[in-house]
């Protein structure tokens, strides 16, 4: 185990706002956090390894929850079960992997998602202006979550 707490960025920076997670975590690397910052790209089975390793995980990802462009939402992924419109915006279902990994542990880790409502997730680089503008607010939300888990 490397630390008790991990911030995990999910998303593909070559699909515009889908890359908001990695973009946000890149800004955190210089900060003195009590968490490991991990960029897992499109979530694969590496996510399972992280869930097995850490006591608490905060996922930062583009989440299409029907909010305003760039709006930030914080939630427990178990609350999102069956709510497809709160799923992450890329293909792999990170929440199913999370659920699988949690079932393999004797005690479930604390998992929170800081989701940012994307605008554009087609091929291309760079965040849309509404999403880019909300990154400072998303970082504030993330730091509040880190203080509470």
């Amino acid at each position: 185990m490397t630390a008790e707490l991990a911030v995990v960025a999910l998303g593909n920076p070559y699909r515009r706002d889908d890359g908001v997670g990695p973009a946000l975590v890149a800004r955190l690397r210089d900060r003195d956090l009590r968490a490991d910052c991990l960029d897992l790209g499109d979530a694969g089975f590496d996510l399972v390894h992280v869930v097995v390793d850490y006591e608490a995980i905060v996922i930062v990802d583009a989440v299409d929850f029907g909010g305003d462009p760039g709006e930030v939402v914080v939630f427990d992924p178990t609350d999102a079960d069956g709510t497809r419109d709160r799923r992450a915006s890329h293909g792999t279902d990170a929440f199913e992997l999370l659920a699988m990994a949690e079932r393999l542990r004797e005690t479930s880790p604390t998992v929170r998602v800081v989701g940012i409502q994307p605008v554009e997730t087609g091929l291309g680089e760079g965040l849309s202006p509404p999403v880019a503008d909300r990154i400072p607010g998303a970082i504030d939300a993330l730091e509040r979550v880190l203080g509470g888990v």
């Binding site: 089975f45 590496d46 399972v48 390894h49 097995v52 659920a99 699988m100 079932r103 393999l104």
Partner: peptide, 22 residues
Amino acid sequence: LPLADTHPDELETVIDLHRLGN
């Protein structure tokens, strides 16, 4: 995914070996 319920020990073994390769 359902193997987490039906074959948890074997799935943990798979995860451990996969991770070792990585």
